[in-house]
Amino acid sequence: MKAMSLRNPVIRRNGNFLIGTAVVTACLWVLVPLYFLAVNALSSPKAVIGFPKPAVPQFNLESVHFFATYEGVATALLNSVLVAGLTMVLAIGLGAPAGYALARFDFPGKSAFRLVVLMTRAFPLPLLALPLTVLYIRTGLDDTALGLAFVHTTLALPFSILITASLFLSIPVELEEAAWTLGCTRIGAFRHIVLPLAVPGIAASAVFAFVTSWNEVFAAAVLTVQHRTLTAFLLQSLDVSPLPLKFAGAAALVLPTLIFLFAVRKYLFSLWGIANR
C-alpha cells in the first residue's frame, strides 16, 4: 500500500531534507531583503551610495543621524505617531462594542450589518481621501491628524469589529452568566470577567489598527500638506531625497511595526485567520 511509503526511513529522510530546505529558503527569502535594508540604514551615506556593496558591511550611524536631522523628518514621525494613535483609539472605541454586540446577541439586522462590514473590504478604501478633501476644507479638518485618522479608522474598523467579535466569542457566555448569578450587573460582569480575559486580544487588534495607519500611504499623501506623516513625507520626496534618506526612512517605517507585531503575534494569527471567514 502506498501508505507504507511514509514509513520507509529513506523516503522519510529525503522528505525531511526537502522540507528543511524549503523552510530555510522561505525564511531567507523574507529575511535577506530586510537584512539589506538594515545594512543600508546602518551604514554611512557614502557606503549607501557606494558601489560595489561590501560583503561585510561596516556599521555606522551616520545615515540614521542624517535622517533624524533632515528637515521635516522629526515632525513627520510625530505626526505618524499621532495619527496612528488616534486611529487605534477610534478603531477600538468604535469596534469593540460592535464586536461584542455581534458576538453575544442575535437580533434583526445582524447578518445585514455583518455583510456591510465585510463588504467594506471589497472597496479600495484609500480612495475615500478624495471626496473627503473637500469636506475637510469646509470643516477645518484638512491637513489635520484627526482628519487623516478618520480615514485610517475606516480602513481599520472592519477588521477591528470582526477580530473583537471572534475574541468575545471565544470567551464563553457562561462565565458572564455565572457572574450575573453571583451579584454582577451586566457592566460589572464585563468589567470583572470579560475585560481581563479580552485585554490581550484587544491589545492585539489595537496594535493592528496602529500598524494599518502607520503604513498607509495614499490617503496620507493626499490629505496632509504641512502636517505630513512619515509615509506622505517619504512618498512626496521620492524624486529629490538622497538614497540614505530613503533607506533610513524605510527602516523607520518598518522597525516599529516589526516590534509591535512580534509582541502580539500569538493573538493575531488566531484572530486574523478566523476573522477572515
Binding site: 523552510v23 522561505a26 525564511c27 523574507v30 529575511l31 531583503p33 530586510l34 539589506f36 535594508l37 543600508n40 549607501v48 551610495i49 557606494g50 558601489f51 560595489p52 556593496k53 500598524v211 502607520w214 503604513n215 498607509e216 500611504v217 509615509t231 517619504l234 512618498l235 538614497l243 530613503k246 533607506f247 526612512g249 524605510a250 517605517l253 518598518v254 511595526t257 516589526l258 509591535f260 507585531l261 512580534f262 503575534r265 494569527f269
Partner: peptide, 29 residues
C-alpha cells in the same frame, strides 16, 4: 516559521518598495 513568513504583513508597501530599491538600484545589491 509562521511569524517569519508573515513579517511582510506589517510592512508598508512604500517601505517594501524602498527595500527592493536597495536591491535593484544602480548601486544596489
Amino acid at each position: 516559521l509562521l511569524y517569519i513568513l508573515t513579517i511582510p504583513l506589517g510592512i508598508s508597501d512604500l517601505a517594501a518598495g524602498l527595500i527592493w530599491l536597495a536591491i535593484f538600484e544602480q548601486t544596489g545589491y
